[in-house]
Simulated scan of single mutants.
Amino acid sequence: MKPTQNVPEDRIQIGQLRSAYGLNGWLWVYSNTEPMSNIFDYLPWFVETKAGWQIVNVKRWKPHGKGLVAALKDVSDRTLAESLVGANIWISKSQLPKAGVDEYYWSDLKGLTVVSLNEEEQDVNLGQIHELFETGANDVMVVHATPDSIDSEERMIPWHKDVVQAVDLEAGRIYVNWGIDY
């Protein structure tokens, strides 16, 4: 595998190469896609290694236990596979399908300013979305305070239709029905 300069500017991380599997260059693949096997719909991958960015093509893949394993083109033995362990898997965001109406990629939500209304119906800055995670019941936004936010609190705000009022990606804001003292 040769280093490449053609790394997409609009890249998004969709997984990671976790550990070598067997002797023939296969690797365990961690996927951020839902379902996890969708990671193989977005090829080629870009991985950042100690040698620089590389374009990776998958020869074969299969589910194994609760995870996924893959054979990569030009990775034919365990030593080469081990050199890729820990590398994050990136793709060009343009490879993803467009989100549907009222659907958002988490990567588009990170960094948005979270705004609520106080009793006087005035905007209150609660901070910025730092990350999102799944709980089973619903997704949760982790909101970190910023120099402009009302206080220095970190907030966990559920992504729920009763809470999320509007998302304005162009303005970089998400409006929520969430009290300052929650």
Rank of each mutant, 00 (worst) to 15 (best):
T4H: 08
E9I: 07
D10F: 01
R11K: 15
L17Y: 04
R18D: 13
S19R: 15
Y21R: 10
L23K: 13
W26Y: 07
W28Y: 06
E34F: 03
E34P: 00
S37N: 13
Y42S: 08
L43Q: 15
P44G: 04
T49V: 03
K50R: 15
G52L: 04
W53V: 04
W53N: 14
Q54L: 10
Q54V: 02
I55N: 11
N57F: 01
K62E: 12
H64P: 00
G65S: 08
G67K: 07
K73P: 01
D74E: 15
S83P: 02
L84S: 08
A87W: 04
I89T: 11
I89A: 06
I91M: 02
S94E: 09
K98D: 05
W106V: 15
W106S: 13
L112S: 07
V115S: 00
N118P: 06
E119K: 15
D123T: 10
L126W: 03
G127F: 06
G127E: 05
A137L: 09
A137Y: 06
A137E: 13
M141R: 03
V142S: 08
T146H: 07
D148A: 13
I150T: 13
M156S: 14
I157Q: 02
W159V: 15
Q165K: 14
Q165W: 04
I174R: 04
W178G: 08
W178H: 11
Y182G: 05
